[in-house]
């Protein structure tokens, strides 16, 4: 496959409101079917990168580009990007009071399709995906993320991933706030969706810890520092980071 699925070239982005620069030249390539992990200390710009890929209006790209299947997506609305196959699992999923998960998911699913899904087919699909993630079907009637525990919110993100079946899944700290059992279920969920799609789905996994990478093995690991990818390597890089800490990565980047 010549062309990478995603190609991020010298990406600079700032906070639209006050011009604070956060991304200072990110370079990254993800090929079809690959799993990449991005690690890095708090505030290094991981979530910002994820949101810029999804088109969050709070950030302005000042330089560089994000190519998806060879085409720049920077002029696309967030919903167009989503329909093109980009999915972001939020670090902090947003509460939408009064909108049920079922209604929300049906609306999203229909927005991806030419023809609305049959209501019974939808119910079957939803229930099977909820079962896979060990979720109580009654959950579907609850308002999106409203009053959910941290773990429930993360599980709900994976449910959406499983329903929408994107080509690029950006998972922003999906492991944080999960206890060990929930982490296993969520990781298994991601693995299953990934397995079903093989080369039709690539994953960008943002995490602080090795523990999720024990369940989901990345092909590549990148370290982000102060708005840049300062180092890339294989799974062993994550282990080294776990052992030596980010100070080590900082020194490396200065060297």
């Amino acid at each position: 496959m010549a062309e990478p699925l995603v190609k991020i070239v010298d990406l600079h982005a700032e906070v639209a409101e006050d011009g604070t620069e956060i991304l200072r030249g990110v370079n990254l390539e993800v090929k079809e079917g690959e799993i990449h992990a991005i690690m890095g200390p708090n505030g290094s710009g991981k979530s910002t990168l994820a949101k810029v890929i999804s088109g969050h209006p709070a950030y302005e790209v000042t330089e560089g580009d994000v190519l998806f299947r060879g085409e720049s997506i920077l002029d696309m609305e967030p919903d167009d990007r989503a329909r093109a196959g980009i999915f972001l699992a939020f670090q902090y999923p947003v509460e939408i009071p009064g909108v049920s998960i079922a209604n929300f998911l049906r609306t999203s699913l229909n927005s991806h399709r030419d023809e609305d899904i049959d209501i019974f087919d939808f119910q079957d699909l939803l229930i099977s995906k909820m079962e896979m993630l060990g979720m109580d079907p009654a959950f579907a009637e609850r308002s999106v993320n409203d009053g959910f525990s941290g773990g429930e919110k993360k599980r709900n993100e994976i449910l959406q991933l499983a329903m929408l079946e994107p080509t690029l899944a950006v998972m922003d700290e999906t492991d944080s706030g999960l206890d060990i059992d929930a982490l296993k279920i969520v990781s298994a969920g991601i693995n299953q969706v990934k397995q079903e799609h093989q080369n039709d789905m690539s994953v960008l996994l943002i995490t602080h810890y090795q523990r999720m990478l024990n369940y989901i093995t990345p092909d590549f690991v990148h370290v982000m520092l102060a708005g840049r990818v300062v180092r890339s390597g294989g799974p062993e890089l994550a282990l080294a980071l776990e052992e030596k800490g980010y100070e080590w990565a900082k020194e490396l980047s200065l060297a």
Binding site: D79, F90, G98, N103, H112
Partner: peptide
Amino acid sequence: EEELFYLQSRGIRYIEAMRLVISGFFGE
């Protein structure tokens, strides 16, 4: 705006996202 972005990031068009959030607002 965060609610709208969340919905949009799931493929829901802006106008549709607005309608959902407003309906949700009345849901209470």
